[in-house]
Design a protein around this nucleic acid. Structure first.
Lengths: 216, 216
DNA sequence: CGAAGATACGGAGGCACCCTCCGCTTAACA
DNA sequence: TGTTAAGCGGAGGGTGCCTCCGTATCTTCG
């Protein structure tokens, strides 16, 4: 029996998942994250198993295909990013909270050197994964955005989707040298532009302009 | 001795490249294109060699790594797209010529199901390739654009880069179902918007608006 | 045209990784 | 503590990667 997210309510007459199975699954995910980030998407699965301290068979039982493993790793990270938003909701300054989250998003991309190519592959075969992560991240960003808007600190005419797309678009050039600082700079400009300002609408529009820019 | 693009001027005391070597190289490229498109980037290189009717050793001599092969295939296609622009320059209607080229660009993406993921990988390691193709395609699109502008049929305030980015951006969602017809439709709208119209500037700006939109 | 030499060809072979399968181990339950 | 379902590990068969070198073919020059 294998632990599957969502069936942890074993109120039905299924057994409690075995402790070692849960532990091993976690270990493999952790190892996979490290190995893939370092060695790219074609890294050896046997290396992952070794690093996790489990047999190759165990790895394959939990994640029958390479893609399954990718997907699980990535899902977990998206979820962590989502949880971060939850934590940031308690921060005092809502604008700063949003800014921080966006920065974490950049960092998320930055540490995924090897993974990003794998994701392009995986997204292609499983658009469900794309939908999941979009949905999840949109909600995360939305909750932060709403709070800033509710506090009267930010304009209300920008949707979470727009913001997420802007973030993704900006990171789309993440293979150019120095992209990270460039994106962080642009994000600051962008967030400033989102602020409700005493200045006229004209100013807000000008500051928001960076977003529509597209990368490659 | 291996045929390398750019050294075909064997005016120096190098030998003429062997006919069979040139032929085989071409065969491998053709086979690779077919195999990768069908089977994705991890298709077997031995399958490519077999399809090309050459030994595996020959393949490896011409393209020492898998990436080299990707790159060569892709470069050739970009060049073909570039040549198409050359041919379209003779067409009577310059606006229609541009439209046709853009459509070919969409088709180019469409037939590259498997390749696109491979390219994401390759672009990452060789940004020189990215630069090459951007440059090449910008020039192609530029020549068509210039002609339409010179003929007074199109507004002059759109750069080839903008146009290319718009095309790429539109195709960025090429894994959604039905994307192709959607993009073709948008392209038509877009080209219409680029036309010089009796209507005021306001109209032109409104029509151009679809470009900044981003897909996913 | 024919010989000589340069160049390219093919595929066997060694290696790494993929993935399955099954006997053994261990945790959950009574 | 015994029973048994669940999970573990890794041997092993298979496939693809890539190198290496004896053989075949092409170009050049007399």
């Amino acid at each position: 029996m294998i632990y599957i997210a969502g069936m942890d309510d074993h109120t039905d007459q299924t057994r409690k998942p075995r402790a070692d199975a849960v532990r091993n699954r976690e270990r493999v995910l952790e190892a996979a994250k490290a190995v893939f980030n370092a060695g790219g998407p074609e890294a050896s699965l046997e290396a992952v198993a070794k690093r996790a301290g489990v047999g190759i068979g165990t790895l394959y039982r939990h994640f029958p295909t390479r893609e399954d493993l990718f997907e699980a790793v990535y899902r977990r990270e998206v979820e962590q990013l989502s949880e971060l938003a939850e934590q940031l909701k308690i921060a005092k300054d809502p604008v700063d909270a949003l800014r921080r989250w966006l920065r974490s998003g950049v960092e998320f991309v930055a540490t995924k050197k090897g993974m990003s190519a794998a994701l392009a592959l995986t997204f292609q075969s499983s658009s469900e994964l794309a939908a999941f992560s979009m949905d999840r991240l949109t909600k995360a960003i939305g909750s932060l955005l709403d709070r800033a808007v509710a506090a009267g600190e930010m304009r209300a005419d920008v949707s979470p989707e727009d913001l997420l797309r802007a973030l993704i678009g900006m990171c789309y050039m993440h293979d150019q040298p120095g992209w990270q600082s460039s994106v962080l700079r642009m994000l600051d400009v962008f967030v400033d532009g989102l602020r409700v300002q005493p200045g006229a609408k004209a100013k807000a529009r000008a500051a928001a302009k960076p977003a529509p820019k597209r990368k490659r």
